[in-house]
Computed example of a mutant assay.
Amino acid sequence: MILCLIALTCSTALAFEPSPLQDFCVADSASPALVNGKFCKDPKLADAKDFFYSGLHLPGNTSNFLGSKITPVNVAQLPGLNTLGISMVRIDFAPCGVNPPHYHPRASEIFTVLEGTLHVGFVTSNPENRLISKVLLKGDVFVFPMGLIHFQRNMGYGNAIAIAAFGSQYPGSVTIANAVFGSNCNIPSEVLTKAFQLDNNVIDYLEAKF
Rank of each mutant, 00 (worst) to 15 (best):
D199Y: 02
M155E: 15
L81I: 05
I161E: 10
N82T: 07
S183Y: 02
N61E: 12
R153N: 14
N64R: 02
G158V: 11
L3A: 12
A160D: 12
A179H: 10
F65Y: 02
F142E: 04
G121E: 07
K138M: 14
D23H: 10
C40Q: 00
D204K: 09
G37W: 03
G55F: 08
I161Q: 10
E115A: 07
A195H: 00
Y157M: 12
V26Q: 00
F111D: 02
I91V: 15
L84T: 10
G37F: 02
L66S: 10
A208G: 03
N154H: 11
N154S: 14
A76G: 09
A160L: 07
V202K: 04
F210N: 10
F51W: 09
L5A: 14
S125M: 02
A165W: 08
E190H: 03
A33D: 11
C96A: 13
F210E: 14
K44N: 12
P105T: 03
Q169W: 01
S133F: 01
S87K: 06
P127R: 15
L34I: 14
V202G: 03
K209P: 00
P32R: 00
L137E: 12
V191L: 15
L114P: 13
A7Q: 13
A179S: 13
S133I: 00
I187P: 11
D28W: 13
A46Y: 07
F24C: 06
F122Y: 15
G85I: 02
K69H: 15
C10P: 00
N201C: 07
F93D: 02
A177K: 01
L114N: 06
I6C: 09
E128C: 04
F196T: 08
K44D: 08
K134Y: 09
V113M: 06
S29Q: 05
A30D: 09
P105E: 07
V73D: 10
P101A: 08
V75T: 12
H150Q: 14
F111P: 03
K209M: 15
D42M: 01
A208H: 08
Q152D: 07
C40M: 05
Q22H: 10
L5P: 13
P59H: 00
A179E: 07
A195Y: 01
V143E: 05
I110V: 14
V26N: 00
N200A: 14
A160H: 06
S189M: 13
L131A: 04
E17R: 07
L3H: 03
N99G: 11
I161T: 15
N61A: 08
I91S: 14
C10D: 10
L192P: 02
D92P: 01
S31G: 07
V120C: 14
A94Y: 01
I203C: 02
G121N: 06
K138E: 15
P72L: 08
S168E: 11
C96M: 13
E190D: 15
